[in-house]
């Protein structure tokens, strides 16, 4: 009952001070699970293309011959499916969010992975069970 039901909250707010997170003076709140953006370790990527195929919005493109791994940050929805799907652990999900850009460019990485002497292909086939 009453006309000033909000009084309690108002007084509490006045007394308690603002709850505002002083971003950007204080860095953004993140937690271990936060899905910020995907990074690649070009040294371990074997250009299998699984990430590209799994990506629900086709943000990742791989050119095997030219050894290029591309990601369009403006398409990426940071679902983390590629990270989960990567059989070699080349992809990691970083917590940091990407800054805004004034121009829309596709990010290119040159894959520096050098094939070792004894190729191990078994585990990759296994995890990519749905390829058909």
């Amino acid at each position: 009952m009453g006309i000033f039901q909000m009084t309690k909250t108002v007084l509490r707010n006045l007394a308690g001070g603002p709850v505002t997170r002083q971003y950007p003076a204080v860095p953004a709140r993140t937690c271990p699970l936060t899905r910020g953006h995907v990074t690649i370790d070009p040294a371990t990527c074997r250009s299998c293309g699984l990430c590209s195929r799994r990506c629900p919005c086709e943000a990742i493109r791989i050119e095997k011959e030219e050894k290029v791994w591309e990601i369009d940050r403006m398409r990426c929805i940071a679902c983390g499916d590629c990270v989960e799907g990567c059989p070699f652990g080349s992809l990691t999900m970083e917590q940091e969010y990407l800054p805004p850009v004034v121009e829309h460019v596709v990010e290119r990485h040159t894959i520096t992975y050098v094939k070792p002497e004894k190729p191990e292909k078994k585990p990759k086939e296994e995890s990519a069970g749905e390829s058909a």
Partner: peptide, 15 residues
């Protein structure tokens, strides 16, 4: 939202 982010990694889209 903080709880959601802590447990799923996303604030509004949990995935």
């Amino acid at each position: 939202l903080d709880v959601l982010e802590d447990t799923t990694g996303g604030r509004v889209i949990q995935g």
